[in-house]
């Protein structure tokens, strides 16, 4: 059920990116989709009653038995994905700003003179 809510969030982002005419709205839809995927991936690795995957340092022994932690692998990969999403957001927003300066509007149906 929680997974389905994440998927609903993804679908809201997809609807926003497909239907809206405003360029910034499309970017926001893509951002919403990124949130949904990140939260879903972290949820898959969650364990009820688990600990954060940080061990107690110097003894070299795990904090508890190692299987009581949440899954560290999705967390590491989502960490990468979040930072990359910031870079792609900066690129998309700069495209939006440049298009606005050129055409004076964010409306994608008004921008008919794209020439590459």
């Amino acid at each position: 059920m929680l997974y389905a809510l994440c998927f609903l969030l993804f679908m809201i982002g997809l609807y926003c990116a497909l239907v809206k005419k405003n360029m910034v709205r499309i970017v926001l839809g893509i951002v919403i989709m990124e949130y949904a995927v990140n939260i879903l991936l972290i949820m898959i690795g969650f364990r009820i009653g688990g600990e954060a995957p940080i061990l107690s340092p110097p003894q070299g022994l795990p904090l508890k038995t190692s299987l009581q932690s949440v899954d560290p692998l999705p967390q590491a990969l989502v960490l990468t994905a979040i930072v990359i999403s910031l870079g792609s957001l900066a690129l998309m927003v700069s495209i939006c700003i440049r298009t606005y300066q050129r055409y004076g509007t964010f409306d994608i149906t008004q921008i008919r003179r794209l020439r590459g």
Binding site: V24, V70, Q75, L89
Partner: peptide, 25 residues
């Protein structure tokens, strides 16, 4: 969800993304 590293990164990225998006709009 017991992912403190992700939470910290998300806050930082969110602040930067808001600055970028507000600059655009």
């Amino acid at each position: 969800l017991k992912a403190p590293d992700i939470a910290i990164t998300q806050i930082t990225v969110e602040v930067l993304a808001l600055i970028i998006l507000i600059r655009a709009t």
